[in-house]
Simulated scan of single mutants.
Amino acid sequence: MDIEKYIRNIADFPKQGIQFKDITPLLANKDASAQCLENLLQLVGGQKIDKVVGIESRGFFFGTLLAQKLNAGFIPIRKPGKLPYTTLKESYQLEYGMDALEIHEDAIKKGDRVLLHDDVLATGGTASAACSLIEKLGGEIVQCNFLIELKGLNGIQKLKKHIVNSLLQY
Rank of each mutant, 00 (worst) to 15 (best):
T123H: 10
D2N: 14
Q47K: 15
N9T: 12
H162I: 08
L37R: 06
G59H: 00
E135K: 08
F146M: 02
L27D: 07
N9K: 07
D106E: 07
E95H: 03
Y92T: 02
S57T: 02
L121H: 08
I49V: 13
G63Q: 06
T123P: 06
G45Y: 14
P84V: 09
V52C: 05
G138F: 06
P14E: 11
E102Y: 01
Q68H: 14
V114D: 00
L133N: 01
G124V: 01
E135N: 10
T87S: 12
S128P: 10
D118Q: 03
P80D: 04
C131G: 12
L66Q: 05
D119G: 03
L40I: 03
C36M: 07
C144M: 07
L88T: 00
N71T: 07
T126F: 00
C144F: 06
Q157D: 14
I23H: 04
A107G: 08
S132D: 09
K110F: 11
H162Q: 08
H117F: 15
A100L: 05
G59P: 02
K158A: 14
P84F: 08
H117M: 11
D22R: 09
D112C: 07
T126I: 00
F62E: 09
T86Y: 15
L153T: 06
D106N: 13
L70H: 05
D119R: 00
L41A: 12
S128C: 14
K161P: 10
S128M: 08
L66N: 03
L88R: 07
Q16T: 12
G17M: 11
V164N: 01
F146I: 00
H104R: 08
L40N: 09
K79V: 02
R113L: 13
G138E: 13
Y170D: 13
R8T: 04
L133R: 01
I156S: 12
H104F: 09
G139P: 10
L65T: 01
K21S: 12
Q169Y: 13
L94H: 06
R113T: 08
F146W: 04
A122G: 11
M98P: 03
L26H: 01
L66D: 00
F60C: 10
I156V: 13
D12F: 09
R113V: 07
I3M: 04
C36K: 00
D118E: 09
N165G: 15
I75C: 10
P80I: 02
F13G: 09
E102T: 04
I148D: 01
L66T: 01
Q68F: 14
A28F: 09
G155M: 03
L115E: 00
Y170K: 06
I10K: 12
A32L: 03
E140S: 14
L168T: 04
R113A: 12
D119E: 14
T24L: 13
D112P: 04
Q143C: 10
Q169G: 11
R8A: 03
L167Q: 05
V114L: 02
